[in-house]
């Protein structure tokens, strides 16, 4: 397109096949160069939809370390590339404007959230687990049978956690004697 006139669609109309200016002559440069953004992705990662338990395959497209598209994975024999509205909304989920990216802390009787570093939060939680565990500790029952447990701490987990995550939760809490470990699966 060295000839500037050739960039003018009206001129292309007169010189090309598209006389009425309703087809190729009317295209803008952007239109001519348009490609699906998925083709510019740095990588495509196979994933699984985080919503219901059908387990539809997803493809996650990443460009410049940003997820640019999540769509159905045609390879999946479960879903054959299809997604429901929730699955199709996965990118909107992980990039929701309402998502929180920082630790929030609310002190007892506080009226507002406060900032807290992640490291400090984990440290404080560890202290509290140790204390609450001790407070609720039950070595034996009334009959002298070993209970080896605490009722001071409880957990209720969602069912969008990975198996590996559940495994660690159960392992850690069991080793700490925490028995009130529950899950959405009960609900």
């Amino acid at each position: 397109m060295r000839n500037p006139l050739a960039r003018w669609p009206a001129a292309r109309q007169l010189t090309g096949r598209d006389r009425t200016g309703r087809g190729e002559a009317a295209r803008s440069q952007r239109t001519i160069e348009l490609q699906p953004r998925t083709h510019q992705a740095d990588r495509v990662v196979q994933s699984i939809c985080p919503f219901c338990a059908v387990g539809c395959g997803q493809r996650v497209y990443v460009q410049n370390e940003v997820v640019t598209q999540i769509e159905g994975d045609p390879d999946s024999p479960i879903s054959r590339g299809r997604l429901c509205p929730k699955g199709a909304a996965s990118r909107n989920l992980v990039q929701s404007p309402l998502r929180e990216y920082r630790v929030r802390y609310r002190r007892p009787y506080g009226t507002e959230w406060e900032d807290l570093s992640l490291e400090r939060a984990v440290d404080m939680i560890a202290d509290r687990v140790i204390t609450a565990r001790a407070e609720g500790w039950q070595d034996h029952d009334a009959d002298g049978r070993s209970l080896n447990r605490t009722l001071g701490v409880a957990s209720l987990g969602g069912a969008t956690l990975d198996n590996e995550e559940n495994y660690l939760i159960k392992k850690l809490f069991t080793a700490l004697g925490i028995v009130q470990v529950e899950n959405q699966a009960r609900i």
């Binding site: 003018w8 669609p9 009206a10 109309q13 009425t20 200016g21 309703r22 002559a25 009317a26």
Partner: peptide, 12 residues
């Protein structure tokens, strides 16, 4: 508006 000359478009 002056990109194209469209006989099908009264506005054009």
């Amino acid at each position: 508006m002056l990109r194209v000359l469209k006989p099908t478009s009264p506005m054009s």
